[in-house]
Amino acid sequence: MKSCFLKPHPGDLKVNKHIPAGSFMLLLLLMASCSKKEEVRQSPPVPVTVAKVELKLIPTQINTYGTIMAYTVVPLKSLVGGQIVKAHVKSGQEVKKGDLLFSIDARPYDAALKQIQANLERDTVLAADSERQARLKEELHSKNAVSEDEMFRTKAVSESLKRTVKIDEANMDRAKLDVEYCSIRSPIDGKAGDVLVDEGSVIKANDATLIVINQIKPVSVSFSVPQFHLNQIKKHIADKKLDLQIKAQNADELPLRAELEFMDNTVDPNTGTIRMEAGLANENERFWPGQFVNVTINMLSEKPVLVVPSQAVQPSQKGNYAYVVKSDMTVELRIVEILRSVAGETALSSGVADGETIITDGHLKLVPGCKVDVKDPNGPAGKKTEKK
């Protein structure tokens, strides 16, 4: 009855002259009876699940953010000037190494090549005749038919013409290159960006960028990690045990494994981090240059630590805590210190001991010292608490 649990204020217990003495005594007896029932009543055991504290190795996991970068970026410029007569590529097109992208009017360069070729042929003939004359003058000099000075002048002209032929050959090679440069081809496999010039435009040599080609198979991932983990990362790199995984943000796909390819040679003094780059195959083009990704680095700890299920540790104003089940099936609240959490497990530095039993579910109904009913068959004493 609700009235049984109402305890009147001491001032209200004064005998009212209008209330009969017998009624007042009856009221006192009823209150005493209700008080005894409250003392006898006990709360039932709280149903909980438990787990054992384990001493084992747990990975050190570093979670950070990274940016996808094209593995190779090539801004194409023309090596010769002239008019673009044909653009063979479209914006965003996938290109292969050697694909023709632009054609520049090659007629001026063809004409220059023909002229140089003609000069080469002329100078070759002159050099051959000069060499013949030099041999003849040398024979005549041996017979004292010509002076030594005339012989050397003839040899000098012959050697000069030979050098002229070599100059013509070099000029012809350069002219051939100019003709070849009129056909601009892709130097890599990749994805074309926006076409920055139109057909009919006149361009200068090595001036404006025509298009940018990005290699996206593979890609690079740029990220930074705190310098605190530097020595441990270097050790895992040396042992080839560094587990590096990349996952797109807000994506359901599984993370992909990447290989660390670069670690900067200095720590950034402004942020206390060190920059790294990893290579990713990206065969299905899941990642795109400029995209933000989640980067996870897993490293094995060097010594065993106390490990509990993550749900066993709860936050409070005084810090993180866990409930420990004692041998009498009552619980004790312990303040714990967290080292790290990985894949549903939390490593603790203090607060619990190896082999102790902790609560993993049912915290909301617990108070220190209350009885519990372990639903886990692996709980204390190895069996479930019997219910009557």
Rank of each mutant, 00 (worst) to 15 (best):
V179W: 01
I188Y: 05
E199R: 01
V146K: 00
G190W: 02
V157H: 09
D129C: 10
A192S: 02
D178E: 11
T164C: 13
D123T: 03
E148P: 08
A134E: 08
E159C: 09
L177N: 03
T164K: 09
A118Q: 10
D178P: 04
E138P: 12
K143E: 09
K166I: 14
A111N: 09
V195T: 06
A145G: 09
R132Y: 04
E159N: 12
V125L: 09
V125H: 10
D198T: 06
K155V: 11
T154Y: 05
S183Y: 07
S160M: 15
I116Q: 10
K166C: 12
Q117C: 09
E159D: 14
R174W: 11
A170N: 14
S130C: 15
I104D: 00
V195C: 05
K155T: 13
H141Q: 03
V125P: 11
V165S: 07
R135M: 01
S142F: 04
I104W: 01
S160V: 15
A170H: 03
V195E: 07
S158C: 06
E121A: 10
T154S: 14
A170W: 12
K176W: 01
G190D: 01
K96E: 12
E139S: 13
K166F: 12
D178V: 04
T124D: 09
A118G: 08
K137R: 15
V197C: 01
S158I: 01
Q117K: 13
D110T: 05
N119L: 10
D173R: 06
L161A: 06
S186I: 00
K137A: 05
L196F: 05
D198V: 05
V195R: 02
I104E: 00
T154I: 09
V197P: 00
P108W: 01
D123I: 02
K137I: 06
R185D: 00
R122D: 13
S142T: 13
D189Y: 13
K166G: 06
K96L: 14
D123P: 04
Y109I: 08
A192H: 00
G200T: 07
L136I: 06
A192F: 00
D110H: 07
K162D: 09
V195H: 05
G98Y: 07
R122G: 12
A175S: 12
A111I: 13
R132S: 05
S147Q: 02
F102C: 02
L126Q: 11
D149S: 08
E150D: 08
T124L: 07
V146S: 00
P108D: 01
L136A: 04
V197E: 00
H141Y: 04
L140Q: 07
A112L: 10
F152L: 15
V179N: 03
A128F: 12
Y109H: 09
A170F: 12
S158A: 13
V179T: 07
D99V: 01
R122S: 14
V146I: 03
V202M: 08
R122N: 13
D149Y: 12
D198E: 07
E199I: 01
A128H: 12
V202G: 05
Y181K: 01
